[in-house]
Nucleic acid binder design. Structure first.
Lengths: 350, 350
DNA sequence: TTGTAAGCGTTATCAT
DNA sequence: ATGATAACGCTTACAA
């Protein structure tokens, strides 16, 4: 078919009605007589018209139904994180009624600066998952455009509502739990710090990733001198590497707080590898409260965040913004959950 | 700001040029004198104009730069699968140059039929990740619209180019490897079959999921009577459940072919749990060739698919289709890779 | 219930 | 190098 697509005008003409009437038949926004509707539908079928052109309709309406999602990291890495996946689930559900769906917006990080897709995409609003300083700087044109923005765990400027966790407070809860059990030789395995990759964190080290810094602060609130080792990502393998390093040292800790459940599992594996029992010889805590595939029979002592709820909150915020309702930042709770990976400090260590 | 957004016409007026000239300053499609460009840019800055309206530009151009991605399953589940994530990576990279990005199109599965978003979204093309019979049926309007389609591992009709793996042949390679090692008591752990959840597969059972059926056929090509047990998904925990079932039976197999690496890891865990050594007492093969987090020290004997390449192939196909080039279906190779999880059949079993 | 009219904001084409 | 013109395909007051 070399012929041009049928438009609503063609359909209207074929049906012997005006374009506006034909339009209304498809949108259903105004009552139409059954006879007219039938004629229009018939004409549409004949002409192979499958409905209004999305771009034209969106332009006219001033809304595309698309919500952009921006990650601070490479997509592949972001989706490695179960928490982010759950969050996407919640987000999908919450923005679903808004229209078309979620647009995965390429971050300027992995492409060259040549692609400011946030401003060239037909999005009604955007959800930022985290926000680096660089991203924050690049946000001006988007804001100028009046595109509503929401940020999940990050700072995108005072005018952007945030969906946050009280990471510090939650992590402190876990630390206090360990202190109550008698632990004093405690270490922590952190998420990436933003600068360089793996390694022991010294007190003066700059930590640009908010989540990492806040959770670390929660540990230090209770155990000021606790050793910390940073990983290159939230994974079992990274936890394993960090765990080995901590358990090989001279002053082996009796408890390790990992900044994610995945890292905690890695630490547990390192302990098993070293012939240590969890929790008899080593207590381990996680963070997230996700179901880790392959973790049984352990049930992690951890801080439970509602990852789906986080995504849903962001979606709801976007919907409210789009509806013109002002939106306040929220801090979601992150309760402590006792599992079987923590226990009293071993007597031998006292 | 209660005032309406500045348009390119406003900018042009303020700069004392025509709208077309102002447009060209932003698109760069035609040479413009430096003086004119400077005036236009200045006017834009003054008016807070941040570039062409994406919808208007897209409508005019007849292209949005957006590629839709459709999954057969719930998003959360799809992203649980490392292979799909890698595939998304490849897809993202390949469609990147095309424009805005990937639109996660809600599948009609989880919403009610009320949301034919594939036809209401401003997409230039779509990639189907798998394709159920129901989806195939719903594709007519999209095809009628002339939206280029590509399907990854699925059948979306003869007019839709496919990106496939030779699952049967690959799986046969693994089976032959085991036969060469002397195994005869062999079982397989499959991906979901589509109908009901977990359970032993009988010979007459209907298997609607192509991948599952093809890989199973590869096993049966070599071991016609091999027992098969279906899982509810590709995960370590599912593999563990299936593995337990197989290893508890009377005629314990000496080798198990799992239809995914994740499942294979679960089977290995089940073996360890039962006090069996891998590969001394039990050989295990996987499928995918991904890096499984937390698998060390095992290196799976497996079939290696290029998941990123699969996504890239789909992206390239979409790009070609959009460029008007005809595209042929491709079958990607899936070579055998020897690891340390398979070995000779135990003497005691001979 | 249906039709008229006026854009939505841009860009391709063709002159100048 | 710049400008005039004409779409792109649709929706929505408002009038009839």
């Amino acid at each position: 078919m070399t012929t041009r697509r049928a438009t609503i005008a063609d359909v209207a003409r074929a049906a012997g009605v005006s374009a506006s009437t034909a339009s209304v038949v498809f949108s259903g926004k105004t009552p139409v007589s059954d006879a007219t509707r039938a004629r229009v539908v018939a004409a549409a079928t004949t002409l192979g018209y499958t409905g209004p052109h999305p771009l034209a309709a969106s332009l006219r309406r001033g809304r595309s139904g698309i919500v952009g999602v921006v990650f601070t990291e490479h997509l592949g890495r972001a989706f490695q994180d179960p928490v982010k996946i759950l969050m996407m689930d919640g987000l999908t559900a919450a923005v679903g009624p808004l229209g078309s769906g979620l647009l995965l917006v390429r971050d300027t990080v992995d492409t060259d600066a040549a692609a400011p897709t946030l401003t060239t995409s037909p999005i009604d609003a955007a959800v930022l998952v985290g926000c680096t300083a660089r991203q924050r700087a690049a946000l001006a044109p988007v804001k100028a455009r009046g595109v509503p923005l929401v940020v999940i765990e990050g700072d995108a400027g005072d005018d952007v509502p945030r969906i946050d966790l009280d990471n510090r407070e939650a992590q402190r809860l876990a630390a206090e739990h360990l202190r109550a059990l008698g632990h004093t030789r405690v270490a922590t395995v952190t998420l990436p710090v933003g600068g360089r990759p793996r390694g022991v964190l010294t007190a003066d080290q700059q930590i640009v990733v908010d989540v990492t810094r806040h959770r670390l602060a929660g540990v230090h609130d209770v155990f000021p001198g606790a050793a910390a080792i940073a990983t290159a990502g939230s994974s079992i393998d990274e936890g394993l590497i960090a765990g080995r390093a901590l358990l090989a040292g001279p002053d082996r800790p009796t408890a390790i707080l990992a900044q994610s459940d995945l890292l905690a599992v890695g630490v547990i594996r390192a302990a098993e590898e070293a012939g240590l029992r969890v929790p008899a010889d080593l207590s381990v805590t996680g963070f997230d409260g996700i179901a880790v595939d392959g973790l049984a029979p352990y049930r992690l002592t951890t801080l439970v965040q509602d990852a789906i709820g986080k995504g849903r909150a962001a979606g709801d915020a976007v919907a409210a913004l789009l509806a013109g309702t002002p939106v306040a930042s929220v801090v979601l709770p992150c309760p402590f959950r006792l599992g079987n990976t923590t226990g009293p400090v071993p007597e031998i260590a006292l």
